[in-house]
C-alpha cells in the first residue's frame, strides 16, 4: 500500500492508498509507533481517500493508534472514507468511536482547534 505523510500546522496527516489489510497493516503500525514516541500531545489525521479496502486487522491497527494518541492527550482522526470502506466501521460500531470527517479540511480544523485548546 502507499503511505505518505506531511506536517500541516503541527498536525501530521497520514495519507494511505490501496488495500489496508492484514498484509499492509504492519507498515502502518510501524509509522504510528514512530509518531508516538516522545509523549507530547499530538494529533494525527489518517486520510483514507485512496484506500479501497479495509479489514479487521487494519481496524485493529487504527484502534491501537487511537488509544495511544488518547493516552498522550492527542487525537487520531479519520477522513475521506469511501462508502464501501465505511461498512466495516458501521458493522463494528467503531464509526461512533472514531472521529470521522468527510474531508481533510474539516479534520484539520478540528485537530488544530483541539491543539490550541491544550496549549
Amino acid at each position: 500500500m502507499d503511505i505518505t505523510n506531511e506536517l500541516i500546522n503541527d498536525v501530521t496527516v497520514l495519507k494511505l492508498g490501496g488495500r489496508f489489510d492484514a498484509y499492509a497493516a504492519p507498515a502502518v503500525e510501524k509509522f504510528l509507533q514512530k509518531t508516538m514516541g516522545d509523549g507530547r500531545p499530538r494529533n494525527l489525521i489518517v486520510n483514507l481517500a485512496q484506500v479501497n479496502f479495509v479489514d479487521s486487522t487494519a481496524l485493529a491497527t487504527l484502534v491501537i493508534g487511537m488509544k495511544h494518541y488518547r493516552q498522550q492527550q492527542g487525537e487520531l482522526l479519520l477522513c475521506h472514507l469511501q462508502q464501501t470502506v465505511r461498512i466495516i466501521f458501521e458493522l463494528t460500531r467503531l464509526d461512533s468511536i472514531f472521529a470521522i470527517y468527510a474531508t481533510q479540511e474539516e479534520a484539520l480544523e478540528r485537530a488544530q482547534q483541539s491543539l490550541s485548546e491544550k496549549n
Binding site: S56, L59, A60, V63, L91, T92, R93, I97
Partner: peptide, 17 residues
Amino acid sequence: LNEIHIHGYGLFIARQL
C-alpha cells in the same frame, strides 16, 4: 459492540456479511 476491542472482529464481520 458496546466495548472497544482490538481483536475478535474478523469472524463477526464474516457472519454479518
